[in-house]
């Protein structure tokens, strides 16, 4: 029963929350979309937290995404032991980087009095969820060796089955506890995502890279109406 709740119901709840809330929040309350930077109040500690954390977590995110989108290619890549080893080692390094960064962020927030004024309950929730996710992820990586090999055979088909609305939960309920916690945690994280500051990741300013430098906004159609 719990398995059905966590692996068949929760994913849909979390997907609906993620999509609806972030879209609705973006439309109704764009003012609340912000990275809520606290560098202005504390900068040294942020460097040692934010940089490793973000580099780590983005690497991990895209690693998971690659396996999800191209499971066959990842499996083929992993057929050569050296390549499997390289992939696993990079993943592990990224995970440690993330943990180091997140630890830094938490220490910084607790130990800097000025930051207390700008810390919301949602921020604490974010720290807890991310910490849980990284710790269980590391546990998987270390205890259930060669995750990148079995991930594509078990979790990826399960995730695809969710998209086909025919959840094959036995694919993940047979996994070890660490992996199950990591997967369940991910759904909770996604469910909470759009209620927290994490929405800043959704508005990452990629189009800036090709936008022209200057931005001019006209109240009236240029050359059109004249007064």
């Amino acid at each position: 029963m719990l398995n059905v709740l966590v692996f068949a119901a929760l994913p849909y709840v979390s997907a609906v929350l993620f999509l609806l809330v972030s879209i609705q929040r973006y439309r109704r309350d764009p003012f609340t979309f912000s990275s809520l930077s606290s560098q202005f109040l504390e900068t040294k500690g942020l460097f040692w937290g934010s940089v490793p954390f973000h580099l780590g977590i983005l690497t991990l995110f895209f690693g998971h995404l690659l396996g999800f989108l191209f499971p066959r290619q990842m499996t083929l890549w992993n057929l050569v032991p050296v390549r499997l080893f390289i992939l696993e080692a990079s993943g592990l390094a990224a995970a440690f980087l993330t943990l180091f960064g997140l630890g830094g962020l938490i220490v910084r927030r607790v130990s800097t009095p000025r930051l207390r004024t700008v810390t919301t309950p949602a921020d604490i929730l974010v720290y807890l969820l991310l910490l849980f996710q990284i710790v269980t992820g590391l546990w998987v990586a270390i205890a259930l060796r060669w995750g990148s090999a079995w991930y594509t055979q078990t979790v990826v088909p399960y995730l695809w089955s969710l998209f086909k609305f025919q959840p094959e939960i036995q694919r993940v309920t047979e996994l070890k506890l660490a992996a199950q916690l990591h997967i369940g945690g991910a759904f909770v994280l996604f469910a909470a995502f759009s209620f927290t500051r994490l929405v800043h990741a959704l508005v990452a300013p990629v189009p800036y890279l090709w936008r022209p430098n200057q931005l001019v906004i006209w109240n009236r159609l240029r050359g059109g109406a004249r007064f």
Binding site: V216, W218, N219, R220
Partner: peptide, 15 residues
């Protein structure tokens, strides 16, 4: 400031 804003939040009013 306008050129540096990645979100396009800063702008110059045309008129």
């Amino acid at each position: 400031c306008v050129a540096a804003c990645p979100s396009g939040a800063l702008y110059k009013r045309g008129e």
